[in-house]
Design a protein around this nucleic acid. Sequence first.
DNA 1: TATCTGTGCTAAATCGATTTTGTTGAAATT
DNA 2: AATTTCAACAAAATCGATTTAGCACAGATA
Lengths: 338, 338
Amino acid sequence: MKRLTLKDVAKMAGVAPSTVSFVLNGKGKQMRIRDEVASRIMQVAEKSGYEPHRMAVNLRTGQSKTLGLIVESISGSFFASLAKTIETEAERRGYNVVYCSTENNAQKGGELIRMLGRQMVDGYLITPAPGMEKEIQHLVQQHKPVVLMDSYFPAIKTPYVLINNFDGVQQGMKHLIGKGLTKIGFVMVDVKLIQIEERLRGYTTALKEHKIPVKKKHILQLQYHRQREDSLNELQAFIEANPELDAIFFSTNYLGILGLEVIARMGLKMPDDIAVLCFDDHDIFRLYPPGISVIEQPIEGIAKTAIDLLMHQLDKNSGPMKKTAVEIPGKFILRGSA
Amino acid sequence: MKRLTLKDVAKMAGVAPSTVSFVLNGKGKQMRIRDEVASRIMQVAEKSGYEPHRMAVNLRTGQSKTLGLIVESISGSFFASLAKTIETEAERRGYNVVYCSTENNAQKGGELIRMLGRQMVDGYLITPAPGMEKEIQHLVQQHKPVVLMDSYFPAIKTPYVLINNFDGVQQGMKHLIGKGLTKIGFVMVDVKLIQIEERLRGYTTALKEHKIPVKKKHILQLQYHRQREDSLNELQAFIEANPELDAIFFSTNYLGILGLEVIARMGLKMPDDIAVLCFDDHDIFRLYPPGISVIEQPIEGIAKTAIDLLMHQLDKNSGPMKKTAVEIPGKFILRGSA
DNA sequence: TATCTGTGCTAAATCGATTTTGTTGAAATT
DNA sequence: AATTTCAACAAAATCGATTTAGCACAGATA
C-alpha cells in the first residue's frame, strides 16, 4: 500500500520520470513532448490517482506553498472572520495556511516567527503586536514577503492593510454629536499601536471640529495587562467620576464588552442613561439589548487585500508594488445603544 | 544569504555530514562518536544557528510532524478553545497543527481530508460532521491515526473523546426539576449525530425518572440547514404554541442564542416567565442578563485527551490502546436564567 | 604471523520530486 | 557526403536531510 510515485506513473506510461514531470507541470509543449505521449501520461496519472509528494516538491522547488498567519488571539472574533476569508482565498491560489497565535505574549511572537521560518512558509500575514517589531523587521530585511494587517510599524517598510481608524471613529462621533450628545467619554488601552492612536485622534478631532472642548478626564486609558476584575473596577470608577457623561465611545470590542458588564452592574440603561458606541463589531453586540452600535471592520476586505499584496510579492515577475499601504473604510452600524 | 545546511556545519566542524546528523539526532553514543567530537559539533551547530530543513527531514523520514485538525466552523467558540489547547499540547510534543474547517459543507469535509492527505499530516483530529463518515472510514482503513472529538460514528473503530452528553443533560434537568419546574421544553437540531441523540435521551430519561410525562409537542426539532430568520420564527411559534412551558432546555449553544433572541423579541423575562438552560457555554451567556445557566463542555480535557490518544497511535512502539473511548463529565454552571 | 573484533568515523544510497544536460535518429543545410 | 539542426525524449544532477553499509586502524585472539 505504498504511495504512488512519479516514477511509478512513468513506468506505467512507458516513459521517463522527467517526461511525466514536464507534462504534469504544463511544460510539455515547451519540452516538445508529442501530444500523443502527453495525453497518454495525463490519462495514466488521472486514473491512477497520482498526487505529487508535497515534501519532495517543496524540497526541490524551495517553495512550500504555505502562508503563515500570525494573530494575537486565535479565539478572537477578528481572527475567526479573518481566517475564514484568508483560508478560502489562499486555497483558491493553491496555498495552504498555518495559523499561529501569540496569545498576548509579546515574547511568543518572535518564537512563532522563527518557528514558521523553520517550517519554510513562503510568506507572512501578521497582525502585529507590540513585542514583534524586531522580528518582523528581521523578516523584511531578509526579503521575506510580509503583509501586516490591522496595524503597522511606521519604521518597517512592508505593505499593510487596515481599516481607516480615524475615519471610522469620525463616523461614530458625528452620529453621537448629531444626536446632540456632547459629553462623550473615550475608553482605550495604553498599548502604543498606530490604530489606537488613530482612533484617539479621530475622537479629539471630531470634538474639536464641533467646538466641543476635549477634556482629559473624559479619556480613560486602561492598562493592557490587567486582571479583568481590576479593569472592570477602574472602568466603573471612571463612569462614576464623570456622571455628566451622556455617551461613551469604546475603542475596541474587548473594552466595549467590559463596558456592558459595568453598565449592567451599575444599573444604567442604554441609550438613555448613557449612550454606547464601540469600535469593532462582536457577536455579542448584535444580541445584547438594546443592540450595541458599532463601527464594523471590513474584515473580508482586509483579508482579500492582504492576500493580494502578499501574492504580488510572491510573484517574482510582477513589477514593483503600486499601493503598499491600504486603508479601507469601516461601516457604521446603528443599533439601539446610541 | 543562503540557508545553512547540514553539510555546511559538517565542513565547519571538520567532519562528515552523517556524523553531524548522528550527533544532532542524539544517536552519537549509539554510533560511537567520541564525546570530544560530539561536543564540538554541538557547539558549531549551536553558534551557527543551524536549523534542519523541515521539508528535507520530512521527505527522508516520511513524517511531517504535523497534525490535521478538522472542525465544523473555525469561527465557533468551541473551536477557539479547542485549537488553543491542541496547539499548545502539540507544540510541546514537537508537532505543528494545520486547521481546516468544513464550514457546514458536508462535501467539503471529504475534500479537506484528501487535501490533508496530500500534505502528509501524520495524524488527524476530527470533529465529525454528518457527511464525513466515508472519508473517515477510509482513513481508518488505511491505518492513519485518527481521533474523533465531540462525536463519533459507532461503525468506525477509532478512538474518540467527548463530553458525557447524557450525564450533562441529566445534571441540568435535575436542577430544573429540583426547582419545581415540570413543563420543560427541549430544542434540538435534526442532524443524526450521537451527541444529539444522547442529549435527547438525557432529557427524556430525566423526566421519566421523576414521573413527568414526556410530551412530543414539548420537543422541537429545528432543521439544520435553514435560514436564521426561519429558525427564529419556528422557535417563536413553538414557544407560543406551548404557553404552559416554564423552562426550555436548548441542546446547543447556537440554539440557545436563537432562543435568547426570540425570548427578547417576545418580551419574556428569564427566569420568571421562562427558565432557560443551555448545553455548551458561550461568551454571550456569561454576559447576557441575567446570565444563562449552562452545561459547560470540558474542552481542555477533551483536547488533551485527544492529543494523548493520537500520540499513542503515532508512537509505533507503544502497546495497544487501553481506553479507546473516553467520556468526560460536563460541568453545570448556575447563572441567573434557571 | 594471520585472522578476528571493535572503534570511530566516512561514503554512498535514499526519500520523490524538478530541472539541466545528453542522446539519438531524421530532416535540413552546405 | 559531411555537417547542422531539430524534434523528442532519457539520463543524471539536485534539493537537504537520514541511514545503511563500508573502511581503516588498533588491539585481541588463534
